[in-house]
């Protein structure tokens, strides 16, 4: 029953994709849209054999993937660390909670030029910027998760003889876990945005750089091919995060 429902959903999604593709083919065939703006689908497809033979393509993919991994590591480690300190220490919470909330309403992209000044135009500035971007939801959710653990769990733990350490590891962390993980998921998505936006705005390598440069020189089919590759990378990254998440939730 649930299976049939899922099949229906997938069928509808495929149908929508087919419609988009049909419109794309129709519009480009009829010559209604300039190939500079929207190339024919088969032209985009033709790019891929060239790409996979091109060491520049593999280099770009590798650079972006590494930047992403670095950014996520920075965001997760710093976010969890700050989140735990702030969430467990009331004076820090009073100072930091409004700051964390405020930071989430600020377009952090504004700070990217500073990142470039500090870390140069290479991958380091993307790691720093992506990490900075992803840091806030992780820290904010960790603070929220730890400070909203129902006090009755802690009282019950005390009555059952939990030591301080046991209270943290066996009660506080499991109770806070779902909310922390949703922060991590959100942070991961923002790391992605940070890294790709960083590459688009100023870089010398990576998928974002290739996208910006093929767009700048009107190599439109290549542009579309690179965007497609970036989307695939995003999908793989998100899938990995969700997987890790589900596994954690089962424990």
């Amino acid at each position: 029953m649930a299976r049939r429902e899922r099949l229906t959903v997938v069928a509808i999604q495929l149908g929508l994709a087919a419609v988009v593709l049909a419109v794309w083919v129709y519009q480009t065939r009829a010559g209604r849209v300039s190939p500079i703006l929207l190339p024919q689908p088969e032209r985009v497809l033709d790019e891929f054999p060239d790409l996979v033979r091109d060491p520049v393509f593999w280099g770009s993919l590798r650079t972006t993937a590494l930047e992403l991994a670095g950014a996520f590591a920075v965001a997760a480690v710093a976010g969890l660390l700050v989140g735990v300190v702030v969430g467990r220490w009331a004076p820090a919470a009073r100072v930091a909670t409004p700051l964390l909330a405020w930071a989430q309403t600020v377009p952090i992209i504004l700070f990217y030029p500073i990142c470039i000044l500090l870390f140069g135009i290479g991958p380091m500035s993307k790691v720093a910027f992506g990490g900075f971007y992803g840091f806030f939801p992780i820290a904010a959710n960790t603070v929220l998760a730890l400070s909203t653990v129902p006090p009755r769990y802690l009282t019950a733990a005390a009555a059952l003889g939990a030591s301080r350490r046991q209270t943290v590891t066996r009660v506080l962390i499991p109770a806070a876990r779902p909310l922390i993980l949703s922060g991590v998921r959100l942070g991961a998505a923002l790391c992605l945005i940070g890294v790709l936006a960083g590459e688009l705005l100023g870089s010398t390598e990576g998928l974002g750089y290739q996208i910006a440069s093929s767009s700048g020189s009107f190599r439109t089919p290549e542009l579309y091919a690179y965007i497609f590759v970036a989307l695939v990378l995003v999908a793989i990254f998100n899938l990995a995060i969700t997987r890790a998440d589900d596994r954690n939730a089962q424990v």
């Binding site: 129902p150 769990y153 009282t155 019950a156 009660v171 499991p174």
Partner: peptide
Amino acid sequence: VFQDYTLF
């Protein structure tokens, strides 16, 4: 035994 039983 708590009034709201508080199981984990």
